[in-house]
Every structure is written in structure tokens, then in C-alpha cells.
């Protein structure tokens, strides 16, 4: 199965794989993977051992595939691995920072190892360290960094040479919720503001949904699904409504909406509205109804938005299909 999304038509994909397979003896890390990745942020999702890191290492030429082909930025991974490594950045999932070197010195050195001259490397390094949010700490040895700072330093070295594509392997690993949000925002900025294509992995679908234009789901080394994030979300069609007040107000709204033909259930302080039935399915009809009901009941509408929490459900559905 090949999935080519709208954004890819007529252009070379950033990454294209065909029948890519990697076996370690009897362990099938990757099996017959055929998928295309376009520009923007692509999330690569899968449970532990799904083959995410294996795929990235094959694309970088660090591992040889057992079978199949792949190209990155139009270069074949077997014939032009070196050209690929000039153009991409890589943030590994594990620790890879020498503890006795400062982030500043380290990123400069890594930029030079990607072919930048001494002064360009210094300038770029200061730039990217600022972008990832390492300030004064950048002059301290990295051994004393928190996990959050280490992840930032790892990201900075991946961006040091201004790549066209970065592989970010579990950048949110080990981060607390606030740092996780920061990191995800940064990933999104890399894709949109910096204009660098991103392939980012995670085993949490929910977090990639927030930042990815496209999601690829791997399961046991096989492609489960690859499609635009909006496709994942569009399927749900559910709405979330929140009104000013307590549970009493929430329930008054829910009961009234149910009377008007919508299937509702409480979710926290909100009302979750299932996809509307046929007579309310017209674009915006359900929205209008909810707004009218709130006005009639004299309730202040705080929130009315598509329910975006269903990516995991889609994954589960997909899993059931296979």
C-alpha cells in the first residue's frame, strides 16, 4: 500500500521507502514498509519495538536494510548515503553528549563536522542554541544538565548545519509535562517557521497529533496507517461544548441537546457531542443548534470545538482492522 497525500503530488517526496525490511535474526524490526513522507512535520508513531528507530537509522545509513529501497531528499540510501547525511540532522533517542564539554563548544564542533567553517559554525551554533532555548547554561559542561536541557542540546546539534530534514527520535522522552509542551512547540516551529522537514517519533499518539501534518503509524515493524493528521481527526466529527457554571449547567445543556436529537455525554466539565445524525449533518447545523440552545437556556458558551482527542481511537480501530 502506498499512500501519497495531496501535498506530495508532483513533487519528490522528502522520504520514500519501498518494501523496506530489516530483520535481526528472527526479530523482524521492519517488514515490507512502503511509505512516502512529504514536507512539514510527520509523526512516526508506534509502541516500543515498533521499528521507529530502526527506520531512522536505515535512512541515515547507520544500518543496512535486509531488503527494500529508500530515498531521502531524492538520494538513494545505498548509493548516496553521504549526500543524505550532509542534508539531514539527527537527534538520537538515547544520551549522546560528552559530559565534560559545554553545549556551545559541542554544537560548534558538530556544525564543523557537517562542513561549516569555523566562524560560520560559531555563528550558527549561537543561533540554534538560542532557538532551542539554551541561554547561559550553554557555557557549562553538559554533564550537569537536566534531561530537558540535554534534549535541547541534542536538538541544537541536529539543527546546527541548517539541514533540510531532521530526524527527531523521541524528543519528548523523559520530559515533564511543561517541558514536553515546549519541546512539541519547538518541533512544530521547526516544521513551519524554520521550513525544515521533520520526522518525529513518539509512542504517544496524542502528542504528535498536536504538531504533525501527517502521521505514520507502525505496529510490529509494519505500516498500519499513513495519512494527514486532519484525516485522522475528521473521522471523529464529535464536538466538545463547555458552558459557564457547574455540573448543573452542564447537565441542563446536555439534556436539552439530547431532546433536540443529539447524542451527548458528560466529559469532565464539558459535554461531548457525538457526530450529529443525518438531519443535523449539514455543515454548521449542529454548531448553530448548540449556540441557539445555549442562548435559550441563558447559558454562557465558553467553548465549542471539534473533539480532537480521538487519534488514539483511530489507532485502535486501525489495529483491529489488520
Amino acid at each position: 500500500m502506498t499512500t501519497v497525500t495531496g501535498e506530495l503530488i508532483g513533487r519528490t517526496p522528502v522520504i520514500a521507502t519501498a518494501g523496506l525490511t530489516k530483520h535481526y535474526g528472527s526479530v523482524h524490526a521492519l517488514t515490507d514498509l512502503t511509505v512516502d513522507v512529504g514536507p512539514g512535520v510527520t509523526g512516526l508513531v508506534g509502541a516500543n519495538g515498533a521499528g521507529k528507530s530502526t527506520l531512522i537509522k536505515i535512512l541515515l545509513g547507520l544500518l543496512e536494510p535486509t531488503a527494500g529501497h529508500a530515498s531521502v531528499l531524492g538520494h538513494d540510501i545505498e548509493q548516496a548515503s553521504q549526500d543524505i547525511r550532509r542534508l539531514v540532522g539527527y537527534m538520537p533517542e538515547h544520551d549522546c553528549l560528552p559530559p565534560d564539554v559545554s553545549a556551545s563548544d559541542f554544537v560548534v564542533h558538530m556544525a564543523r563536522m557537517s562542513g561549516l567553517g569555523a566562524s560560520a559554525a560559531r555563528e550558527r551554533s549561537a543561533d540554534v542554541l538560542r532557538h532551542v532555548g539554551l541561554d547561559e547554561e550553554r557555557y557549562r559542561p553538559m554533564g550537569g544538565y537536566s534531561t530537558g536541557m540535554k534534549q535541547r542540546a541534542k536538538l541544537a546539534q541536529a539543527l546546527a548545519h541548517d539541514p533540510q530534514l531532521v530526524f527527531l527520535d523521541e524528543p519528548t522522552n523523559g520530559l515533564d509535562p511543561a517541558a514536553r509542551t515546549d519541546m512539541l512547540r519547538l518541533v512544530q516551529r521547526i516544521g513551519s517557521d524554520f521550513g525544515i522537514a521533520v520526522l518525529v517519533t513518539s509512542h504517544l499518539l496524542g502528542e504528535l497529533e498536536q504538531v504533525s501534518d501527517h502521521v505514520i503509524v507502525l505496529d510490529g515493524g509494519r505500516l498500519l496507517r499513513s495519512s494527514a493528521t486532519t484525516d485522522f481527526l475528521r473521522q471523529t466529527g464529535s464536538l466538545l461544548v463547555e458552558v459557564v457554571g457547574t455540573e448543573t449547567e452542564r447537565d441542563r445543556l446536555g439534556e436539552e441537546l439530547a431532546r433536540r436529537g443529539l447524542t451527548c455525554r458528560p466529559r469532565g466539565s464539558m459535554v461531548a457531542v457525538d457526530p450529529p445524525p443525518a438531519d443535523l449533518a449539514a455543515e454548521g447545523a449542529a454548531h448553530d443548534l448548540i449556540r441557539d440552545v445555549a442562548v435559550e437556556l441563558g447559558l454562557g458558551l465558553m467553548r465549542l470545538e471539534p473533539d480532537r482527542g480521538h487519534l488514539e481511537d483511530v489507532f485502535l480501530e486501525g489495529g483491529a482492522r489488520v
Binding site: Q82, G89, Y90, D95, C96, S114
Partner: peptide, 18 residues
């Protein structure tokens, strides 16, 4: 030893030098 122990070797090998 250093590049292998701290695994920064991975960052080198993900760059142009083989």
C-alpha cells in the same frame, strides 16, 4: 573511548564522514 562511551559516535556517523 570517549566518543564510544558517551555515544557521540552516533552523531559523527550521522554526518558526512563515514
Amino acid at each position: 573511548s570517549r566518543d564510544l562511551r558517551h555515544r557521540s559516535i552516533v552523531l559523527y556517523l550521522a554526518r558526512p564522514l563515514s
